[in-house]
């Protein structure tokens, strides 16, 4: 490296003055020509790092950590399962979304009376991962509950769901997998799927990503009442109807609760907020009903709610006001 041989103290003093004196001298870099450019850059970088070091000493981690530690100790809660990355990558062979109405009947028909069913319940903080006896895996959305046996006895695997979940069913042609979700039964021979059964909407919707799923109303036992769904299709059971209606799924975000990925294509702010509220368990409101008709086109891949709100706010020149821990007010500037 070409370090100049004849570095005089004056030369260093001039460079130091240029770098360090406040305010920086106006004179155009005295003697800069005398420095090898690479050498000069490295000196500047060294000076910058020294400054960085000294400035960081103002924020000593060892001094401030105890306060943070005290808070997290106090807030430690019992732990839920954590979704692993493998699980998140499963774009689902089959995904079923069931929006389930009113009453839940899972205690009614079951063949596991001889076995004490286990139950997994999520709290409001996240999703729960459950591994079933046959190796199938269920991811539960928040506020959801799955009842399942320790062991699957007999020639059928049965579980009951209240809320929303995503299933990865271990294939077993000899032992069908059946989910009882309130007024609906979902039958899968072996694949993956997502189930949501919330007792508020009065309907069950089943969306299939890939594979084949047979859905039927619980009050129909004849084969004619069953409907076969293919990828991209959506089955809907409304109220006390005895058959599912088949249609094409048009909601690209039906799995957002699990993936936190959203695709909005000229979606109204009203709809965007509805989905965000559900997935992030937040309460976003607009100051003016006219704002509900604003349109948003965006793609979010597992971003914090705050980030999404910032993007919306920037797009439409809105201000965000955090009115509570999980409550936000959007208003026009």
């Amino acid at each position: 490296m070409g370090t100049p041989k004849d570095n005089t103290n004056e030369k260093w003093a001039a460079l130091a003055k240029q770098l360090f004196d406040e305010p920086a001298p106006d004179k155009a870099q005295p003697g800069e020509d005398a420095w090898d450019e690479q050498e000069l850059q490295q000196i500047c970088e060294t000076a910058r790092q020294v400054d960085l070091h000294l400035h960081q000493r103002r924020f000593a981690a060892t001094r401030d950590y105890p306060a943070v530690e005290a808070i997290i100790r106090k807030q430690n809660r019992p732990v839920l399962w954590r979704l692993n990355r493998f699980w998140m990558r499963i774009a689902a062979l089959v995904a079923l979304v069931l929006l389930l109405g009113s009453v839940l009947l899972w205690t009614a028909q079951s063949n596991w009376q001889t076995v004490a069913p286990e139950s997994a319940v999520t709290d409001n903080y996240g999703r729960t991962r459950i591994e079933l006896a046959d190796g199938s895996v269920v991811t539960l959305n928040r506020g959801s509950r799955l009842d399942y046996p320790d062991q699957f006895k007999g020639d059928i695997r049965e579980v009951s769901l209240n809320g929303e979940a995503f299933f990865e069913v271990r294939p077993n042609a000899a032992k069908a997998f059946v989910i009882h979700a309130g007024p609906a039964n979902i039958r899968v021979v072996g694949t993956s799927f997502n189930v949501n059964a919330r007792p508020t909407s009065g309907e069950v919707a089943v969306v299939v990503e890939s594979g084949k799923v047979e859905v039927s109303a619980a009050n129909r036992t004849d084969k004619a009442g069953a409907l076969m769904l293919s990828p991209g299709q959506r089955g809907l059971l409304v109220g006390s109807a005895s058959v599912f209606e088949k249609s094409t799924n048009i909601d690209p975000n039906y799995l957002a609760w699990k993936t936190h990925s959203f695709q909005f294509e000229k979606t109204s702010l009203e709809e965007v907020i509805k989905q965000l509220n559900k997935v992030y368990n937040v309460h976003i409101v607009t100051a003016d009903p006219a704002m509900d008709q604003l349109l948003l086109t965006a793609h979010f891949d597992d971003r914090p709610i705050r980030f999404i709100l910032e993007v919306i706010a920037m797009t439409h020149k809105l201000t965000i006001q955090q009115t509570d821990a999980e409550a936000y007010l959007l208003s026009k500037k």
Binding site: N7, W12, A13, L15, F20, D21, I43
Partner: peptide, 18 residues
């Protein structure tokens, strides 16, 4: 000025390996 120049020179030399 002189001392700052010397300090810079010394630090540069010390930290050169980095």
């Amino acid at each position: 000025e002189t001392q700052m120049g010397l300090a810079l020179r010394q630090l540069r030399s010390d930290l050169k390996e980095y």
